[in-house]
C-alpha cells in the first residue's frame, strides 16, 4: 500500500548541502506494522516527514495506494513525539480530537461519534472536557493518538511517539498501539530508537544506516500474536531478534567525521 522508492533528501545546497536521507527503499503492505529503527540523528524524522508529505524529497518518490505523495494525504495521520507542542493548549481534549474533522464534510452527530469512539479507544472518555495540560504526559500522547484515529486514516505514521514518557507508561502505550491496530485495521509505520520497542511491536523492522540513511536490513519478526509485555519478552526469539538489531545498529556507531556531519545537519535543520 505504501511504497518508498529511492527516497533521498538533502538540506541546503552547494557547499553547505547536508544529505540526511540517502536512498531509502521500503514497501509496506496493507495492515502491516513496520518499525523503523536507526542510530540517533540518522534522519528518521526527515524520512517520516517525506513520507507524510510535509517535506518534499530531493530524489525518489513516495507512493500511497498508487498515488504519488506531494502533500499530506487524507488517508494518512501523523503522531509526533512532542505531544505538548502538537496538542493545542487553549482548547479541550474534545476540540483537539475534533481538529482534523472540522474541514471534512461530516454531519455533526457523525463528528462527535468519531471523537467519542477515538477517545474510547485510548481510554480517555472521562477526560473529554479537560484541557490537555491537565493530563499526564502519557495521557496527552493518547489524546494525540485519538486525534489521529478520529481522522480515520488507513495509515498511521508515528514519530518516536513514546520517547518522552516513563517506562511503565510506555509499555501501556505500546499495547494501546497494538489494540488500536486490531480495532481499526490501520497500517502503521512506527519510527523509534528503542530496539526493544521495535521488536515488540513490529511485523517487520527496517534498520537504517547512519546519515545519509539507507535501509540496512529488513527483518521479519515472527513472534506470536497477541504480544504480551512479559511473555513475549521472555521468548528466546525475542532475545535473538533484539540482539540482532542491536548489533546492526552498534556497527553503525558514528566515526568522528560523521559526528561533524551530524552537527552540520542539526545546524541546517535549525535554519529550515
Amino acid at each position: 500500500m505504501l511504497e518508498i522508492r529511492h527516497l533521498g533528501k538533502t538540506y541546503g545546497s552547494g557547499e553547505r548541502a547536508t544529505r540526511a536521507v540517502g536512498d531509502v527503499d521500503l514497501t509496506v503492505t496493507e495492515g502491516e506494522l513496520v518499525c523503523v529503527v536507526g542510530p540517533s540523528g540518522c534522519g528518521k524524522t526527515t524520512l517520516l516527514k517525506c513520507i507524510g508529505g510535509l517535506l518534499r524529497p530531493t530524489s525518489g518518490e513516495v507512493v500511497l495506494r498508487g498515488r504519488r505523495v506531494t502533500d499530506p494525504p487524507e488517508e494518512m495521520a501523523l503522531v509526533f513525539q512532542d505531544y505538548s507542542r502538537s496538542l493545542m493548549p487553549w482548547t479541550s481534549v474534545r476540540n483537539n480530537v475534533l481538529l482534523p474533522l472540522r474541514h471534512k464534510k461530516l454531519a455533526r452527530a457523525e463528528r462527535s461519534r468519531l471523537v467519542e469512539e477515538a477517545l474510547d479507544a485510548v481510554g480517555l472518555t472521562r477526560f473529554i472536557d479537560h484541557y490537555p495540560w491537565q493530563l499526564s504526559g502519557g495521557m496527552q500522547q493518547r489524546v494525540a493518538i485519538a486525534r489521529a484515529l478520529a481522522y480515520q486514516p488507513s495509515i498511521l505514521l508515528m514519530d518516536e511517539p513514546f520517547a518522552s514518557v516513563d517506562a511503565q507508561t510506555r509499555g501501556d502505550l505500546e499495547d494501546l498501539v497494538l489494540s488500536v491496530r486490531e480495532r481499526f485495521g490501520v497500517t502503521i509505520v512506527f519510527v523509534t530508537h528503542d530496539i526493544d520497542e521495535s521488536v515488540y511491536l513490529a511485523d517487520r523492522i527496517a534498520v537504517l544506516t547512519h546519515a545519509p540513511t539507507e535501509v540496512k536490513e529488513l527483518i521479519a519478526v515472527d513472534l506470536p500474536s497477541p504480544r504480551d509485555q512479559i511473555a513475549t519478552k521472555e521468548l528466546p526469539d525475542f532475545a535473538r531478534l533484539r540482539a540482532h538489531v542491536y548489533r546492526l545498529i552498534k556497527r553503525e556507531r558514528p566515526a568522528a567525521g560523521d559526528l561533524a556531519d551530524e552537527e552540520a545537519l542539526a545546524a541546517t535543520r535549525a535554519e529550515t
Binding site: K49, G52, G53, L54, P72, E74, M76, A77, L78, F80, D82, R85, S86, M88, W90, T91, L99, P100, R102, H103, R147, Y151
Partner: peptide
Amino acid sequence: DPVALDTARSFGLGPVERLYRITLPSTV
C-alpha cells in the same frame, strides 16, 4: 511552534484554517 503547524498541515488544514485554528489562538 513549527510542530503545531506541521500537525495542522498533516491533517489537511489549509492556510486559512491554519491561520484561525492555530496561528491566531497561539498569538493571543
